[in-house]
Design a protein around this nucleic acid. Structure first.
Lengths: 285, 285
DNA sequence: TGCAAGCATCATTATTATTGATATTGAAAT
DNA sequence: ATTTCAATATCAATAATAATGATGCTTGCA
């Protein structure tokens, strides 16, 4: 059994299809078939059920895939750790919730690139739960998410407290009638949306007049064009404040916490340490 | 990088000699040389310093070897777990301190073999610190040791409290003069020896008239032949009690605890669970 | 019944690992 | 100094293994 066998195995498990796995791996189907059969033979048990539409993991296969992931993660980490130089370098993959990208976060990124040109930084954006999952699955070194997440595998550092504002189209005059408002919101799971829901529930207002946006840009565009209102950190609007109406909301719902999360058991590269240090410093200002 | 590369790497690291590693692995020296060079090339750094007497790990090599061990342990565990049947089977390696082998422990082993014939049990004996190390290094599934060991990687279960007795040659009459006694002891680190040292110190008696034995059998033989006295659990003498003088010692030093230890993070096979259950039951009687 | 999607088989080829013979090296002994 | 020894390094030849491409087999579905 070799690491490459585990990679082949996991590709099949994820694709649930040998041909697709082969394609993804850049191999020919017969090769992948042969390899997985050899692995099964070596283990003395089937890892997959074969059926006409593809394959699915057996129970033992599920167990084995958990180990395979751990083993491959560990082997990647081993290489990374040992290749690392004194000066931060190598790949660094960070997740950021959409709303944070609007802050002076971008300036900090630029500064980071200037200081550590040997780090190849890639930024992923997504919702907090998405990023959380990606961090847990070793697909991200760390992520900026909103809200508190308790997981035995994570550590989180508080970065910044955000102040939520009721954001309305510019033509509105004064605080709107909540029960008459149409809402533009992020997909379920977004902490801003949860705050809005909680607030409206406390006001006795129903929460069904909503339009859902997966991208923050289009959501803001929707508000700008007068179609709906929303709840967002004031900082997001900083650039063109005048294009919106902005109103404070009750203190109870006003604050959200941005955290930098990472896996507890994952080795933090020099690049990651430098990155989080820079972010913390810049946020402290 | 493959698991076999890691195995080759670790063999070299342990032997500190490529030729010996090759022999141990059943390969020819040039092959092992080529493989480790290929691995070093892949990592882009030297893992070993070459010198005329062999090789030694570089700093990075040390780091890498830690990972290599974890990865190989995990991969072995993966195979073991997935191969395991409902009924306890497969290899089971248990360490036992010498003194325990003298109890009705052997009966319990026989009973275990009768019940679970598919388990191939191997028993290692040694001193408590030795066994502790072997458990930590994944060389033993578990071990019976004496004394309490605190390690974040271990869990231990209390099996039995042993009662230490001053054991003297049979020809002695009455409690001996401690300051005139010659002592037969186990190597340093043995809890019986430590207890003896502590006791004698409290009595103001020096502890230098000692003969050291690495095997309990020969130590007992020494006492039987009248050369020395020692401190041992009463149970050890059960078989031929009359051949010795046995005296109680102060309560403060009288008791030692036998524990079954295992690694916290190691998967406990069905065989191990069955084994520890049987032992606990038999000891409870 | 025929088709399409998917895995299995197998002979062939390409790649990689292993060998065996030999070179090289540096330290210790003469 | 020279020899010897115990190491690792090199390299051409061979063995073992992996990958390919063509084809066969099964199943569900139109």
């Amino acid at each position: 059994m070799e690491l490459s066998d585990l990679k082949v195995f996991l590709a099949i498990a994820e694709e649930r299809n040998i041909s697709r796995a082969a394609e993804r791996l850049g191999y020919v189907q017969s090769n992948v078939t042969a390899r997985i059969r050899k692995l099964e033979e070596e283990l003395g048990l089937p890892l997959f059920y074969r059926h006409p539409k593809g394959v699915t993991l057996t129970d033992k296969g599920v167990t084995f895939s958990e180990y395979a992931k751990s083993i491959l993660n560990l082997s990647e980490e081993a290489v990374q750790v040992v290749k690392e130089t004194e000066f931060p370098s190598g790949p660094l993959t960070i997740g950021v919730v959409d709303s944070v990208t609007c802050l002076d976060f971008m300036d900090t990124l630029a500064e980071f690139q200037r200081r550590y040109p040997d780090v190849s930084l890639s930024i992923w954006s997504g919702t907090s739960p998405d990023l959380l999952t990606k961090v847990l699955e070793h697909q991200l070194d760390g992520a900026f998410v909103i809200g508190e997440f308790a997981s035995p595998h994570l550590v989180s550092e508080h970065i910044q407290r955000e102040e939520l504002t009721l954001v309305t189209p510019p033509n509105m005059n004064g605080f709107p009638d909540l029960s008459q408002t149409r809402w533009a919101v992020s997909p379920a799971g977004c902490p801003f949306r949860r705050a809005l829901e909680a607030w409206l529930r406390s006001e006795g207002v129903s929460f069904d007049n909503i339009i859902e946006f997966s991208s923050l840009e289009t959501l803001i565009g929707c508000v700008r064009s007068g179609l709906a209102s929303t709840l967002l950190p004031a900082s997001v609007l900083a650039a063109d404040y005048s294009a919106f109406g902005a109103f404070p909301i009750p203190e109870q719902y006003r604050y959200t916490q941005t955290c930098l999360i990472r896996r507890k058991d994952r080795y933090s590269s020099k690049a990651f340490v430098a990155f989080s240090k820079l972010i913390l410093d810049s946020m402290a200002v």
